[in-house]
Nucleic acid binder design. Structure first.
Lengths: 342, 342
DNA sequence: AGGCGTAGTCGAAACGTTTCAATTACACTT
DNA sequence: AAGTGTAATTGAAACGTTTCGACTACGCCT
């Protein structure tokens, strides 16, 4: 394995000159640069990561912190991870994956101070996210995939669930639905301040309010059986419900089943829209469900780019990015057909 | 950030002594060891990854190569990745994620020679996997999650799909089915030699053969619509089909739909078993499908352990591990009820 | 008593970069 | 002609480990 010394010898320059040529840290004459690069090419030279990391400030390694969520992993997440990994590599960075729990702050502090990584992209962001303080204190660059309650000075990219929920209410209202419910994740997840849960619900509430419709909300574990049971609770709150918005895709088959047991057909008697799920999940269900899909790949890319720009001190225009979700109409939503005893 | 020098000073020993105490590379008196560890504790010392990597032979970083498959990503994979990441960390290793394509051998060669990682765990293994030659030549330790055609001298862990398929045939035969079909992934994936596809099919063939049953095989893209269309082809081959085994979970809803259009009910008129999928996917479908599930988390763990043991030159008993899959009976499989005009 | 092996420790030389301070070369000012 | 400024280049000192060779005690053998 050739080193910088070999390259320097071959090009007939000093070691430091090679370094400057590679990194562009200082002006180098065009002619010298050519010779250096030619030498590198000839020798098949690759800079040693460790020497770089040791000597310089930067390691060119970033971390993706993905605390595996209790609510279960979706395909959304993996699209995201893949896109982040690719983007990192395209920019000449390696990406390590940290999966330890959110609450394991000691572990996080240790790894943070280790100096291995130049920065972190954080997934699974909560409204009051404790990781932020740690990274701020350590002076470690980071970007968030998600939103906190207070976003001052933060850089993040997030799908605009609040807007998505409002739009979904609007979409259903236009189909004639006047009693639209909302099925959130579990109460525990909501109370912990998990961003998408909180904001989707907020959007829903705004949506029904501006439309002058009643609000019906239930929380529900991410399981089929919980979904099955929760339809009763929803109908206890509002017996006239004809449509349901949810971000809990795992509970959906249960809801559908419960609807079927009432003799309801989907979407004729009952409409269902899932926010935040992905096509490959939606198409597994019968009927395939209408979704509002976040742009996962774009988010992974932007999250990493946001981080790298910060690490490299590039001027950044927009560091707080909200991306729109896309409504994909499938077989679970349609015009309101039921007429309540009028 | 404290360094070894600080620790050495505080413990009143030489730097090298600290190093020996940490790594156990040379004998150290119990008393000195105690003092060194106490000093480390007090100072919150963490060894610097780069200095280690530079000075020593090892980096304590491993890579997980996960070329995102064309057939689409399942939840299986993410369980796997998470478990691998955790295992790495538990053993004091960092894990970087490589997602570039299988065919991008140049990229792979570069990263391999870079010397960043001590070894690689390879996912998505094909029967004739080109990565192996690269790693062998470079002398880089690796372990495989999957099987190649020739397994001499390789270390791998894999779910025993062949056995699983045979068992599944047996299970269905016991339920009275005498015409059991097999739905594979796409022909392209099969021809490329993707392990699970090849071996599940082989197991199926063995299974039907030993049971004296006819064999019916079709290939199918991983989409709902392809599944829908393929049931026709299957029935064209064997009109008496009453059960279907598949490893193509994405096509399943299509098959179910096509069965429903024929007026068949599942599982009364037609049984369906999915090999290699996971519970959270199976439960989304209506009815929830019977699966034969690979032990993903165990495989991730073992794959990483196999690699680390090799890196650390530990004696290894069993380096070729086949793990059994688990049959989970849900609502898509049951006794054969149809009787063909007898 | 002298020599020898061994457990425990130390000092210093790598490892391959980045980066700082210093030097050269050269054109331009006065 | 001497001085000034700038672009291009150099040499050497970090960076924080691992590891090799050497050195001390000390008990054991002859």
């Amino acid at each position: 394995m050739p080193t910088m010394i070999d390259v320097a010898k071959r090009a007939g320059v000093a070691i430091s000159t090679v370094s400057y040529a590679i990194n562009g840290t200082r002006p180098i004459s065009e002619e010298t640069r050519q010779r250096v690069f030619a030498a590198m090419e000839d020798l098949g030279y690759k800079p040693n990561v460790f020497a770089r990391g040791l000597a310089g400030k930067r390691s060119r390694i970033i971390a993706l912190h993905f605390p595996i969520p209790e609510r279960g992993v979706g395909l959304t997440e993996i699209e995201f991870i893949a896109s982040a990994a690719n983007t990192a590599r395209e920019n000449g960075y390696e990406m390590v994956l940290w999966t330890f729990e959110m609450h394991d702050l000691d572990e996080l502090r240790q790894l943070t101070q280790q100096g291995l990584v130049d920065g972190v992209v954080a997934m699974e962001v909560y409204e009051h996210d404790q990781r932020i303080a740690i990274w701020r204190d350590a002076g470690l660059p980071f970007s968030l995939i998600g939103l906190t309650a207070n976003t001052d000075g933060l850089r993040f990219v997030e799908a605009d669930f609040e807007q998505a929920a409002q739009d979904t209410v609007h979409y259903l209202a236009q189909l004639g639905h006047t009693h639209i419910g909302f099925l959130n994740q579990s109460r525990a997840v909501y109370d912990a301040g998990y961003g998408p849960g909180v904001r989707t619900q907020r959007g829903y509430e705004k949506g029904v309010q501006t439309a002058g419709l009643p609000s019906t909300i239930q929380y529900c574990q991410a399981t089929v059986s919980a979904g099955f049971e929760t339809l009763d609770s929803l109908l206890a709150q509002d017996p006239d419900l004809t449509a349901l918005i949810t971000i809990n895709d795992r509970a959906v088959p249960g809801v559908m089943q419960a609807a079927a047991e009432r003799g309801w057909r989907i979407p004729d008697d009952f409409s269902l829209v899932v926010i935040g799920s992905s096509a490959s999940i939606a198409e597994l269900m019968t009927p395939p469900v209408t979704t509002v899909e976040p742009p996962n790949a774009a988010m992974g890319r932007l999250g990493v780019e946001l981080l790298i720009q910060q690490i490299e001190d590039q001027e950044q225009k927009n560091v707080q990015i909200m991306l729109p979700c896309t409504l994909v109409i499938r077989g679970s939503s349609g015009p309101c057909r039921r007429d309540f005893g009028k």
